[in-house]
Design a protein around this nucleic acid. Structure first.
Length: 469
RNA sequence: GGCUCCAUGGUCAAGCGGUUAAGACACCGCCCUUUCACGGCGGUUACAGGAGUUCGAACCUCCUUGGAGUCACCA
């Protein structure tokens, strides 16, 4: 599920909960060409992982089913015919070829792109001819009959008053030649039949909503409240797209983000509770959600901030829970089955921002070799390669002398040695940590690294690195 | 291109005619830990431009500029 869709669902859910409403899941699958096996299951699973439960839907049932549009074909056709009778729509037999010709005729003279608009050709077909062609089984579509002039307006709860001239809207297809409706029609019929009070959707529908309102009006149905949501952008120019491959909920889960963090983050992308809170639980989100806090301008998805939020959620997990979630990532790393995961987790919980940081953070335990001696450089501790060399030379015998290898004995022995060594403790530890890991940043200090590696490996690495200084 | 919409730091954003223009992420610095992080403290950075309305505009109006959406037998 795309992050944008998920946010729309989230706002719907939050609003429904906040106002003791009903959250309905409806599957809009009227485009059989875009059918993706398993897609519905992903929707169920994602909503469940995020804690959004619906009281009506294909799997839960409800009074207004079926909740899958492909199973409501007859309903749409029935209403479409009624709309034709009311003058709000008409049969169209135009071939694809004619429509293409139409587009060419209207193309700009100097090769620039011009946009076509259907010429209402079939609107003027005699009744008898329509009857005859229908009876003959000729393929047809049903088009919406948009007035040639006039203006339509409505009030969006986020954007305010929106008005569009009918002359700017074309006679869109309501029922396709395969008998299924387009979104343009299905959404109106279903929303009415299912008693939908509030329509939350992306702002790409902002200017096509007058078309839908026209249908409501023709049927004399009550129009719903509209809440159009600003787009989520990848950067200032492009909206977050599936094509980038990382805009899906599942991708973030695979990267080791927690559903709670994702939900919290996207809730705040385009909406503000009005106060300074950045980290809100699901219950707090429900209590605080208010349409007035939705912003109008698009927001850029900022992964670093999601990372930070995720780190907050990671830190408040119990050690056991953190370890449980981290295990799959140890399994993907070089330390697989070689280290005590719980011990690693204790070090990593306060350091990892996302779980997929784990393999890289931990691989040095199994992978050690040459590294750039510039890593020893540390202004504050006054360490450079020369100091490191002297420090390591002095430190090695002291490490060799440690009997009973444990975090405590390592700590006590090295600290005691530091007193008499003539080196500052910081110089010793800094040099040792670099020497033993070959990394600037590690999931713990020198003591933890020694403890993790064990005495033989620690000494081997200390000597190996010293030789190269 | 027509139409619709949008415009506060690099990013998310508060602000609703009188504010030293919040807060968060990121970045930088300091402290803590004589080691990596975490954490704490502090700092740099914003009202797109121009007219108008007003005693007074980030807030209201208009224009300009920039950006987005849309113009399918997709949703």
């Amino acid at each position: 599920m795309h992050i944008g869709n998920l946010r729309t669902a989230l706002y719907c859910y939050l609003y429904a909960r906040r106002h003791k409403g009903i959250f309905i899941l409806r599957i809009e699958d009227t485009d059989q060409e875009r059918f993706v096996p398993g897609a519905t299951e992903i929707i169920y699973q994602t909503l469940q992982e995020c804690g959004m439960t619906h009281e009506e839907g294909p799997d839960t049932g409800g009074k207004y089913g079926p909740y899958v549009q492909s199973q409501r074909k007859d309903i749409y056709l029935r209403y479409a015919k009624r709309l034709v009778q009311l003058g709000g729509a008409y049969y169209c037999f135009c071939s694809k070829e004619r429509l293409e010709t139409l587009a060419e005729e209207q193309s700009g003279a100097n090769g620039e792109k011009t946009y076509k608009k259907y010429d209402k050709h079939c609107l003027h077909l005699p009744k008898e001819e329509i009857k005859r062609r229908l009876a003959a089984g000729e393929p047809y579509v049903i088009r919406q009959n948009i007035p040639l002039s006039g203006t339509s307006s409505y009030t969006d709860l986020v954007f305010g008053e929106i008005s569009v001239d009918f002359s700017d809207i074309e006679d869109n297809i309501l029922i396709k030649s395969d008998g299924l409706p387009t979104y343009n029609f299905a959404n109106v019929v279903d929303d009415h039949l299912m008693k939908i009070s509030h329509v939350f959707r992306g702002s790409e529908y902002l200017s096509s909503t007058p078309k839908y309102n026209l249908i409501y009006d023709t049927f004399k149905w009550e129009r719903p409240q509209y809440i159009h949501l600003p787009l989520i952008m990848r950067d200032a120019q492009h909206k977050l797209s599936k094509r980038h491959g990382d805009a899906n909920f599942d991708d973030f889960i695979k990267k080791g983000y927690l559903p709670e963090a994702i939900v919290n983050y996207i809730a705040l992308l385009g909406w503000s509770p009005g106060d300074n809170r950045e980290k809100l639980s699901f219950a707090e989100l429900i209590a605080a959600f208010d349409i007035a806090g939705i912003s109008k301008s698009g927001s850029i998805f900022d992964e670093p901030k999601l990372r930070w939020l995720n780190a907050q959620y990671l830190k408040e997990l119990s050690p056991e829970e953190f370890n449980r979630r981290a295990i799959p990532f140890y399994e993907q790393s070089k330390v697989k089955n070689k280290y005590d995961y719980a011990k690693l987790s204790a070090l990593l919980q306060s350091r990892a921002e996302i779980l997929s940081d784990i393999p890289d953070a931990v691989d040095f335990l199994e992978e050690f070799g040459d590294f750039d001696n510039a890593l020893y450089l540390n202004q504050k501790q006054k360490v450079d390669a020369a100091v490191a060399k002297a420090a390591l030379t002095a430190l090695i015998p002291a490490v060799e002398a440690i009997s009973d290898w444990s975090l405590t004995t390592i700590h006590d022995s090295v600290s005691a040695f530091a007193e008499t060594s003539g080196f500052k403790k910081g110089q010793l530890l800094w040099s040792a940590r670099i020497a033993v890991t070959g990394r600037a940043s590690t999931p713990g200090g020198a003591f933890e690294m020694f403890d993790l590696l064990g005495k033989p490996e620690t000494l081997r690495r200390l000597k190996y690195s010293l030789e190269r200084l």
